[in-house]
Design a binder for these strands. Structure first.
Lengths: 313, 313
DNA sequence: GTCTATAAAGAGATAGAC
DNA sequence: GTCTATCTCTTTATAGAC
């Protein structure tokens, strides 16, 4: 009968290898896209045999889902601090900018989560988006993944993003409000729900403040708003010619359109002034947020050329 | 020396087989998704050997690109008649609805064109989206594909969509305007450019009529608007929980937000009234437009469950 | 033109030795 | 736990007979 220390050590070792597997998998996905993720490649990367992987994950799919959970948590982590912004409209704009920045900074992660497979996309998005009610069916290891992911890369990513997005908005105002919006969106939910609720809360406030048409269904508005952000990110990742104007200009116009310009009365056409770079400069937006990542430089670059391209001989 | 008739017959036969190949490929993509498209499957479907395919197409990629060209042309075909709508705002709304309807009615086609690979997406989108100028580098067989595609399926699809989308708008007004907007967007361009120009023209008119902020850059607005539409379609195809509200409600809110409600003074909250079905009824929108297609019923269905899922044992 | 046959590469997953 | 070896399956693409 082995001492308890031995059991713990073995458990730690097992857990460590699991992490190494996920690390390697993440790197492969980031570098070559999800389609190129194979058990063999992972095994090669960590210098184990393919068979070993199956002691930790039942299938390639399980690895993919673990990666997804990390990604969701990572995205949520960039949202949470923004919930502090006092003005609901500015808060939503900051969330929108952070969302786009995340997608641009982590293209393959974003692809995996939101553009790859309905089963992946649906996984961490429990029964979310169901207006408000809808009994919360807890997603499992998602929040735990947040803690883990935060330990290596996403913590940095989150902070960078937050500072970048909050700069120039009402960031300072959050210290003045004190109580207002510090609820971190019930943490026992899955990240998808949590992120959604952050947005919905801001929307409710906006409506309460009379800055949103009283007849507007916030759930519908939220979905359309989300679609706009997703569309910007998705086109940016997939369409080589997409923003012909600087990305942040397009984002600015979208945010102004959905939320109205001037929270306190700045001249309209806020995005107009930004129109100077006039050529795809995802860096203009992403450069602010996504510089201190552990991800490969290729990920923060403009466009991955033509990564996917699964099988070719 | 064979008579000319023999040469022609052989040429016709060769062309016919080429069409059969593309037909089979299209069916496979529609049924099982692009990832499942393989030379063997095509060969099986047309009851030829795989080797024969290589006499008509150099590679699987070439087939994919031919499919893309068809898809672009098909989408453009649903746009062209809408250019007749007199009121620019209503025209843009109709275009938006048609765009979403197309994506919902032909999910795998839409996926292939706009969500699969940057090289596919960029192909038929020549140097488009480049604001206005940018010397037109002619894309090759795209327009020819329009003629071909129109011959079998897309003509019906286009007409159905047009009638559906135009109903309830200013369709009748087009007969009153006469001259206004009948330019079919220089036909020697590629479909991507053509579609874009239809939209840009409407936008310019909108701005000229003072219904769009004078400081707004129409190219930026157009891209953000497109992103919204793409986001709606893309989320609908990928995210199982996406529109919790009926799809057309979300589309309605988006269009109203971008274009303002009431072109002539109808009460605001135009989308509110639509909120009744309250459950994903893509049919509510797509049912109108996409009923008489030659595509498999699965394509017009709500969601393809989990089609892609490339390799599994 | 079309076929058969096959090369060459890669995938996921497993059995069984150690 | 880990590895070796392998099974099974699938893919693109080609060579060469007919």
């Amino acid at each position: 009968m082995p001492g308890m220390g031995i059991v713990e050590r073995k458990s730690r070792q097992k857990q460590a290898l699991r992490e190494r597997i996920l690390d390697a998998a993440r790197r492969i996905v980031m570098r070559e896209g999800f389609a190129a993720l194979s058990m063999r490649k992972i095994a090669d990367a960590i210098e184990y045999s393919p068979a070993t992987l199956y002691l930790h994950f039942a299938s390639r799919d399980e690895i993919a889902q673990a990666l997804c959970a990390e990604g969701y948590a990572q995205l949520l982590a960039t949202f949470v601090p923004l919930a502090q912004i006092a003005d609901p409209a500015e808060r939503l704009k900051a969330l929108g900018r952070a969302y786009v920045a995340f997608g641009v900074a982590h293209p393959e992660t974003y692809r995996l989560i939101f553009m790859e497979d309905p089963s992946y996309t649906g996984a961490a998005l429990g029964g979310a988006a169901a207006t408000a009610g809808k009994g919360a069916d807890g997603a499992d290891g998602a929040v735990a993944a947040l803690a883990d992911a935060g330990a290596d890369t996403s913590a940095n990513a989150a902070n960078e993003t937050v500072e970048g997005a909050a700069a120039g908005t009402t960031a300072a105002a959050s210290s003045a409000s004190g109580k207002a919006n510090l609820a971190p969106a019930k943490p026992d939910d899955d990240p998808g729900d949590a992120a959604l609720h952050i947005m919905l809360r801001a929307l409710e406030e906006l409506k309460a403040a009379g800055r949103l048409s009283a007849s507007m269904d916030v759930a519908v508005w939220a979905e359309a708003f989300w679609a706009t952000l997703h569309g910007i990110v998705a086109l940016n990742l997939t369409c080589p010619v997409f923003p012909s104007a600087p990305l942040d200009t397009v984002v600015g116009v979208a945010l102004d359109t959905w939320l109205g310009m001037h929270p306190a009365g700045q001249p309209q056409g806020a995005a107009k002034s930004t129109r100077a770079g006039k050529k795809k400069s995802a860096e203009a937006l992403a450069g602010l947020h996504a510089e201190a990542h552990s991800e490969s430089p290729a990920e923060t670059g403009v466009k991955p050329a033509t990564k996917p391209k699964a099988t070719s001989a």
